[in-house]
Amino acid sequence: MDVSREKTLREPRVSSLALQVAKYTAVGKITVRNNLAYLYDYLIRSLFLLVILYIFAQLWRVTYDGIGTATISGYTFEQLLWYLVFAEAMVLSSPRLARRIEDEVKKGDVAYQLTRPVSYLLFQYAQYMGEAYVLVPVHLLVGGALGTMMFGVPHFGWGWIGFLLISVGAFTVNFLLNMILALTSFWIEETRGLEFVYYKIVFTLGGMLLPLEMFGGTVRQIADWLPFQCVVYFPSKTAVQFDAGEIGHMLGVQAVWAAVLTVCLTLIYRKGVKKLNVNGG
């Protein structure tokens, strides 16, 4: 081989952290811009959010009136409704991975992405976050419109910042869990059913339908030991009842789960790629 070419090729590439960050930030950014094209569709589709929030508003108004106290499990009626706005926004804004990844696995696109100097998982993560943060403002706007109509403009102050901060961890944990489910398509035919069931768990133990404080002893304890609370309960609670002391705890729990799940995801991904090698695409 030609010496000069040999040298330029062999020169260790300095993929510094900065370049890596720039790379995946660029992926995230381009996803945001690409998804802005769907903004109108997103808005139309999110109108259903108004129906469900309206029903919940009616149900809880009747409940608060019936009980006759100002708070239930520490939430005022206004706080509870805003909690539900944030909770629905978190769930509805989470991109659905199962169909996309299943297609990529089956058509072998997973393989083709490997011809580029990017990590498949980080690429997907950057895309996921990009899409989620296009959707969150849309859903908060639609849901918030109802909240504002009922209670006037909300004053969460630090709650907004807290929500933004915790939502990053929330989407990260949700991405990891969903990606693990989606990658099982290396072995099983249909993963959309699994995703469906997963979201039912998020609805309940993740605290989308009810804040976790409303649960009785054992159910609450179980929920505390599972990762689902990171996805919905943490960010929604932070938004409506900001507590600087709690933030540290929540971030800590999210970090632990993110670490554990990242290890699981990496193992599963490696096993899947290996299977691709053994059994073909």
Partner: peptide, 24 residues
């Protein structure tokens, strides 16, 4: 999965009624 889906609401109302015995 559809049966499971529907039981989510049984769960919801189960929790609800342990705290509040009546809705109107």
């Amino acid at each position: 999965t559809m049966i499971l889906n529907n039981f989510v609401w049984v769960f919801f109302w189960g929790i609800y009624f342990t705290k509040f015995p009546l809705v109107n």
